[in-house]
Amino acid sequence: MQKIAVFVDVQNIYYTTRQTYGRQFNYRKLWQHLLLQGDVVTAYAYAIDKGDNQQRKFQDALKHIGFDVKLKPFIQRSDGSAKGDWDVGITIDVLQVAESVDTVVLLSGDGDFAILLDTIKARHQVRAEVYGVPALTANALINSATVFNPIYEDFLL
């Protein structure tokens, strides 16, 4: 049985599915789909904590499905801009897990992860699957993936 590790860039998936389809991603359907492929041994969902109740309910739902939810506080800068991404955290976790699994699944459209996928494929000979909204996923990330799984309506609520 294939060992699968899943890493979700929650903010990226939320905004890309909302922008493209006006709908939310169906994490339960993804989980069921992945279980048909193998054993999900690690599953992290990386989110920004703004402290509101609706967000906590969503995070609890992710935990109930089987995700370990990692939170980072939302930071509002004095100039009005905001900071809150998990790129480094996701990268570190993927690098730590890649040697012990057969497949790394990344949900994101962020092209910054392309070099990460190239690295884990070369060092650990793992499959690198990406799920992303086609129009909003960087070509570099699509090209670095062993398999690109486009998020269409069938993966939405």
Rank of each mutant, 00 (worst) to 15 (best):
Q2P: 15
I4G: 02
A5D: 11
D9I: 12
V10P: 04
V10L: 13
Q11S: 12
Q11M: 13
I13S: 04
Y15P: 02
T17R: 06
R18T: 10
Q19H: 11
T20Q: 11
Y21Q: 04
Y27T: 08
Y27D: 09
R28Q: 09
R28D: 10
R28A: 11
K29V: 04
L30P: 02
W31R: 07
Q32I: 13
H33V: 05
L36E: 06
V41L: 03
T42D: 02
A43P: 03
Y44L: 00
A45M: 09
Y46R: 04
A47C: 07
I48Y: 00
D52G: 13
Q54E: 10
Q54F: 09
F58N: 04
Q59C: 03
A61R: 09
L62Y: 01
H64P: 05
D68G: 04
D68L: 15
V69W: 01
K70R: 14
G80R: 14
G80E: 10
S81P: 14
S81F: 15
S81C: 07
S81K: 12
K83E: 04
I92G: 14
I92D: 15
I92K: 03
D93T: 06
L95C: 14
A98I: 10
S100I: 10
T103W: 06
V104S: 05
V105K: 01
D110Q: 14
F113D: 05
D118I: 06
V126P: 12
R127C: 04
R127Q: 13
A128S: 13
A128L: 05
Y131I: 09
A135I: 05
A135C: 07
A135W: 07
A138I: 09
A138G: 03
N139S: 14
I142Q: 08
A145C: 05
T146F: 13
V147R: 15
V147P: 01
F148H: 08
P150K: 11
E153Y: 15
E153G: 10
D154G: 02
D154S: 06
L156I: 05
